[in-house]
C-alpha cells in the first residue's frame, strides 16, 4: 500500500465515479441540492478520517470545526464580500487555526479526556453562537447571505446545479490533496504514530507535532466542508455544532472504513442515500435506526456488519484501535 507504485486501476475507478457524480446534477436537476449536500458531508467525513483513521484520535466533537467553517464563511459572505472562493478560504483558515490551537488539548490525556474535550469544545461553540445572536442570528440561524458568482462568472442557481458542481470540485481536490499527503513520507510517519506512538517516538518521529498536524489538517478540511454547506444552502443553523452531527460523521466514516482515503466519501454517500430512504418512511425515528446501526457496528464489529461478504478493502479498518 505504502510502497505501491501502480495505481492506474484505482485512478480509473475514482475518475469514473466522479465523472458520474459531476453528471448527476445536470441529468437529474431535482437532485442537485442533494448532490451538493452529500459532497459537502463527504468532505466532512474525509476530514474526520485524517483525525481518526490517520491519527487515531477518537473525537465526539468534530462538528466544532465544521460549524466554525460554516459560520466563518457565512458571516464573511454577509458582512465582507460575497465571493465564494474567498469565503471558502476564510472558512478553511479559521478552522485550521482553531484546530492547531485545540491540538494542544488532544496531545495529552486518555481517550476519555479527548472525547470529553472535543465534545465540550463543540458545545462551547454552540453556546457562543447561541448567545451572540446579534451576529449569528442565534436559534433562528444565520440568514441573508447572498453568494456572488463562482469565479466571477457562474451564478449560484436556485436549483443547485452550480453549487453541486462547486461542492464536488472542492471534494475532488481535497481528496487528491489528502491522498497525496497520506501516501507521502510524511503520511507514512502518520501511520506509524497511529499504529504505535511509543515506537514512533523511539524511531525519531516527533509524535506530538505529527498529531497536531493531522488534527489541524482535519480541522481545515472540516472547515471547508462547513463553508460549502453554508454557501450552497445559503443558511447556517446552530445545528452545525450539535453532537448529532459529530455522531453522524463518525457513523459515515465507520460505514466506509476509517484509515482509507475513500472510506469517508463512500460512507457519506451510503449514509445520505440511506437517510433519504428511511426518512421517507419514518421521518421522526431516523435517530432510532441510526442508534441501532451504531450499536450493531460496535457490538458485532465493523467488519461483520459492513462487509460480511468479503474483506476486499485492503487496509483493515481494525487498524484503528
Amino acid at each position: 500500500m505504502l510502497l505501491a507504485t501502480d495505481r492506474w486501476r484505482e485512478r480509473l475507478i475514482v475518475g469514473f465515479l466522479f465523472a458520474v457524480a459531476f453528471g448527476l446534477p445536470w441529468l437529474m436537476p431535482s437532485r442537485a441540492l442533494f448532490v451538493a449536500e452529500t459532497a459537502s458531508v463527504a468532505l466532512f467525513a474525509l476530514s474526520l478520517d485524517l483525525v481518526l483513521g490517520y491519527a487515531g484520535i477518537v473525537s465526539l466533537g468534530h462538528a466544532a470545526f465544521f460549524g466554525v467553517g460554516a459560520y466563518a464563511a457565512g458571516l464573511f459572505a454577509k458582512l465582507v464580500m460575497p465571493d465564494p472562493l474567498t469565503g471558502l478560504a476564510v472558512g478553511i483558515a479559521v478552522a485550521a487555526l482553531m484546530g492547531l490551537a485545540c491540538s494542544l488539548t488532544i496531545l495529552r490525556g486518555s481517550d476519555l479526556t479527548r472525547i470529553m474535550v472535543t465534545l465540550a469544545l463543540s458545545l462551547l461553540l454552540y453556546e457562543l453562537a447561541n448567545r451572540f445572536d446579534a451576529i449569528t442570528g442565534g436559534a433562528d440561524g444565520l440568514q441573508g447571505m447572498a453568494m456572488g458568482p463562482l469565479l466571477g462568472r457562474f451564478e449560484f442557481d436556485l436549483q443547485g446545479q452550480v453549487p453541486a458542481t462547486y461542492a464536488l470540485a472542492v471534494l475532488f481536490l481535497a481528496l487528491l490533496l489528502v491522498q497525496w499527503v497520506v501516501r507521502s513520507p510524511l503520511g507514512a510517519t502518520l501511520l506509524a504514530v497511529r499504529d504505535n506512538p511509543l515506537r514512533a517516538a523511539a524511531v525519531g518521529i516527533p509524535v506530538a507535532s505529527r498529531l497536531a498536524f493531522a488534527y489541524a489538517f482535519g480541522a481545515a478540511l472540516a472547515g471547508a466542508a462547513g463553508a460549502l454547506v453554508a454557501q450552497t444552502s445559503g443558511f447556517v443553523s446552530l445545528e452545525v455544532f450539535s453532537i448529532e452531527r459529530s455522531a453522524d460523521v463518525l457513523l459515515m466514516l465507520v460505514i466506509g472504513g476509517a484509515g482509507w482515503v475513500y472510506g469517508g466519501v463512500l460512507g457519506a454517500v451510503a449514509f445520505k442515500v440511506l437517510n433519504e430512504l428511511v426518512a421517507g418512511i419514518t421521518p421522526q425515528y431516523w435517530t432510532f435506526w441510526m442508534g441501532l446501526f451504531l450499536l450493531a457496528i460496535g457490538l458485532l464489529g465493523r467488519e461483520r456488519v459492513l462487509r460480511p461478504w468479503a474483506l476486499w478493502q485492503r487496509p483493515s479498518t481494525k487498524a484503528v484501535r
Binding site: 505504502l2 510502497l3 507504485t5 499527503v181 513520507p185 507514512a188 510517519t189 506509524a192 524511531v203 525519531g204
Partner: peptide
C-alpha cells in the same frame, strides 16, 4: 518492508516531506 522503508526515510530527513512516495 513498509516499516523499514518509513524509518529509513525518516532517518534520511524525508519525514516531513508531504509529497512524492517512498516507493
Amino acid at each position: 518492508r513498509e516499516t523499514l522503508a518509513l524509518i529509513v526515510g525518516q532517518q534520511r530527513g524525508l519525514g516531513r516531506r508531504w509529497w512524492g512516495s517512498l516507493a
